[in-house]
Design a protein around this nucleic acid. Sequence first.
DNA 1: TTGGAGTCAATAGG
DNA 2: CCTATTGACTCCAA
Length: 330
Amino acid sequence: APESPLSSAEESVKSQQEEQMCRASIQEPSETSESQPGTPLPLPLPGHSGLSIQEMVAMSPELDTYAITKKVKEVLTDNNLAYMKRRHSSIGESHSLETALSGSDLTQGASPQNLSQQHQQQPQQQQPQLKKPRVVLAPEEKEALKRAYQQKPYPSPKTIEELASQLNLKTSTVINWFHNYRSRIRRELFIEEIQAAAGEGGSPSTRPGKSGGEGDNSCDGTESDSTAEGRPSGTEERKGLLESPSLSHRDEEGEAEFPSASGSSRPRGGIIDSLFGIPESISAATTAATPPCRNPKDSSLRKKKAANLNNIIHRLEKAANRDEPHEWEF
DNA sequence: TTGGAGTCAATAGG
DNA sequence: CCTATTGACTCCAA
């Protein structure tokens, strides 16, 4: 059932009306109770300044944002919602993936379930600990994810789970990371192409700017010097990360590499390198199109484009054959 | 259901 | 204190 944070008895007609008034009048981004389309619009607020927000807006020739804000705050305060950040109202509802992975406790705070229950049962209490701690990925984890991305910009759910398990992260974190990473790479490439198209006369591949510094570390996923490491080139397009010995043949060496989360420390250092140590496998087509280059900047740009090309290839493959039967044979 | 786009917000660094 | 980075989230389209 769609509960609102005001699921207690205090969820009176009045508060519902006030909430709807907020939405109807000023598009307040409330994620609270479900709307009831048929409900008539607001009455003046008892105990407050007499006029509803809608009336205030209607009566004033211009939007008095200060007054409106004040009014909204009154309403929210009235319902003990004034200190809840928007996102927190949905914490408990959107974490099915996380709960599926509750085994990896890491450094997360209170469980979503608890948050949700607190939210529903005691909306009166303001609980600062509702704040969800931000996950900060370790450099090694980012590196591993980047390598995984190089192998497969669009990992399957299974791959994601494996990655999450190997890195001791939540699957939702891995999913988010891939979403963000793809998005940011796309944006970077777009910007670069815009700049290249603007063509200030310099060599595009050596253009200074983001690609020389931060960009390499943040979004191209290719800042490592593993460019030309010796994987037999070409034909192993879809092999790589998840076919690395440590994953596909865990009995050999990978098994004990990641200490359990019980040690309260996530894996560090060469561990991940050994797991994901296979040099980036750019697709055969990509490799053919982009022969090795010793210039770091060229290499970086090349790898960005290669990753993007992989992305495109993946989508073409997906379009051509949605089953991708070859993809998970490891 | 999945991925992209856009955004929010926590954190780190200058 | 301000800005950049980045994980998480919402919304929407396919």
